[in-house]
Nucleic acid binder design. Structure first.
Lengths: 146, 146
DNA sequence: AATCGTTGTAACAAAATGAATTACAACAAA
DNA sequence: TTTGTTGTAATTCATTTTGTTACAACGATT
């Protein structure tokens, strides 16, 4: 199964805020126009990013802004903010291996460290990439359009 | 979203085949007993592993066996065999970013290489771990039970 | 050739999750 | 008080996963 589009939408939102904050108010409607999804989807993601301390959202007057230096917001921060999986586990382990079977009894002990190392490899790479990298490339590609 | 339990079930199946092949016929019913799921779920996974050339399944007489040396079957082989995502993409990209917006027009170009590097980090670690590692630890933990 | 246990697979139901949408109270600024 | 917006609940729809029943196809054995 794939990682929810909430993640790529969240990154898209950061790129929009940085690109347009001087000229526009970054409302959920504005962002929804760029991402091309329902504004409520945007607002839910904004809430998750806000709760993670990555952005601020102005209630009443409206508009989102980024709460931290761009190079201090990693993909891992964003991923953890928007992924709803309670446990934080990348792999879904089958629930009830038989404890009457020697393999069933031990499969969790055998696999857990291996699954962790895979998840860690993914998260380490996610921690290496920041919103600053995204902004840099966004500016580059927009400049190439001119 | 999490990676389907088909993956951990598939690894569990390999551990069972290796552990019990001398003493039992590895039918979908037998495997279902150890994994504790419906035999049809097992058969579906056996089909996927067979199509990937990782195991053979005896139609009629019944029973599964491993088709390659244990240290030549990596977690990545198993993952690719059982993951049904057509594209093989770990991330679900939001479908239709607006091409009227400079950010929406370019977000794919900005993100694709970054998402690929994350997926590659995960797959590289998956390629590092083999069924031989699983068998080794399975024997170790079963021995510790005695 | 008839039987038996098993695989391969279709069909369907059930559960979980993701995403779209409507609706509206709460809020802040003008 | 009005206006535009956020925060959030409720509902629907779609997709995917998992469970289950059912049965034809198959291969070995008798």
């Amino acid at each position: 199964m794939q990682i929810s589009s909430r993640f790529t939408i969240a990154i898209h939102i950061f790129a929009c805020i940085d690109t347009f904050e001087k000229d526009y108010k970054l409302t959920s409607d504005f962002l929804a126009g760029s991402v091309n999804v329902n504004p409520v989807v945007i607002r839910r993601i904004l809430q998750q990013l806000k709760q993670a301390g990555l952005i601020t959202v102005a209630r009443g007057s409206g508009g989102a802004s980024i709460a931290k230096p761009l190079d201090e917001i990693t993909f891992l921060d964003v991923y953890k903010a928007v992924e709803c999986v309670s446990s934080g586990e990348l792999f879904h382990f089958h629930e009830n291996p038989s404890d009457k079977c020697p393999v069933g009894r031990n499969i969790h002990k055998v696999l857990d460290d291996k699954l962790d190392s895979i998840q860690k490899a993914m998260e380490d790479e996610m921690a290496r990439i920041t919103i600053a990298d995204v902004i840099e490339d966004t500016k580059k590609f927009i400049a190439l359009e001119q």
